[in-house]
Computed example of a mutant assay.
Amino acid sequence: MGEFVGELMALFADGFVRRLHVARTRRRLAAGRTVRVPCSARSDRPGWQPAYVNGRLRITPGAATVTFDTRPGRIELPAGGTFHDPEPDVWHDQDWAATAYRPPGDGAPVFLQVDSRYLPMVHAALADPNSQQPQQKV
């Protein structure tokens, strides 16, 4: 019984903390500051590991690239690409939303998984980086 209660507490606490982090991330983006979004990614592109790797997407409003930071290193994703359906059966984490991002030019897509509350921010940063520009007060 105690183990079950412990699992429920972790579940609710994670949801609360994640909700606070999402709100903070939105505020920082609106203010024009760099944010880091927890993410898992994989690709068949050169320089990428063939399996999902946990890391963070570093999003800078208006930047031409988004950086995927992992322990082994950094990989730059050029903005302005398109999003497609995710891989059907090889998701890294069923609790996270999955999407396939194809950077401009040709090549293999990059498969990203983020918490679904971050997904609109990731789509805006990669597909239309100019939409992330800070709003000027009039």
Rank of each mutant, 00 (worst) to 15 (best):
residue 1 M to N: 12
residue 13 A to R: 15
residue 30 A to G: 13
residue 9 M to A: 10
residue 90 V to C: 01
residue 70 T to I: 00
residue 36 R to Q: 14
residue 70 T to N: 03
residue 66 V to K: 07
residue 37 V to C: 06
residue 129 P to W: 10
residue 138 V to E: 15
residue 83 F to Y: 08
residue 105 G to W: 08
residue 73 G to Y: 00
residue 30 A to P: 10
residue 134 P to M: 08
residue 107 G to T: 04
residue 31 A to V: 07
residue 97 A to N: 03
residue 107 G to E: 07
residue 28 R to K: 13
residue 35 V to Q: 05
residue 22 V to G: 03
residue 31 A to Q: 15
residue 88 P to D: 00
residue 10 A to L: 13
residue 60 T to C: 00
residue 9 M to Q: 14
residue 122 V to I: 06
residue 124 A to I: 01
residue 109 P to W: 11
residue 119 L to D: 09
residue 10 A to T: 12
residue 120 P to Q: 12
residue 58 R to S: 09
residue 95 D to K: 06
residue 97 A to F: 03
residue 35 V to A: 01
residue 33 R to E: 15
residue 16 F to S: 11
residue 114 V to L: 06
residue 110 V to Y: 09
residue 69 D to M: 02
residue 74 R to M: 04
residue 4 F to N: 12
residue 97 A to D: 04
residue 30 A to W: 12
residue 125 A to E: 08
residue 111 F to T: 05
residue 110 V to T: 07
residue 72 P to I: 11
residue 45 R to D: 04
residue 71 R to W: 14
residue 32 G to N: 10
residue 48 W to N: 05
residue 98 A to P: 03
residue 29 L to G: 07
residue 48 W to C: 01
residue 131 S to E: 13
residue 113 Q to T: 06
residue 88 P to M: 02
residue 10 A to P: 06
residue 123 H to K: 14
residue 37 V to Q: 05
residue 67 T to A: 07
residue 83 F to G: 00
residue 70 T to W: 03
residue 24 R to T: 10
residue 90 V to K: 09
residue 10 A to W: 13
residue 100 A to L: 05
residue 120 P to M: 09
residue 56 R to W: 00
residue 63 A to D: 14
residue 11 L to E: 15
residue 11 L to R: 14
residue 56 R to K: 05
residue 66 V to N: 08
residue 79 A to G: 07
residue 87 E to S: 11
residue 73 G to K: 04
residue 67 T to E: 13
residue 1 M to S: 12
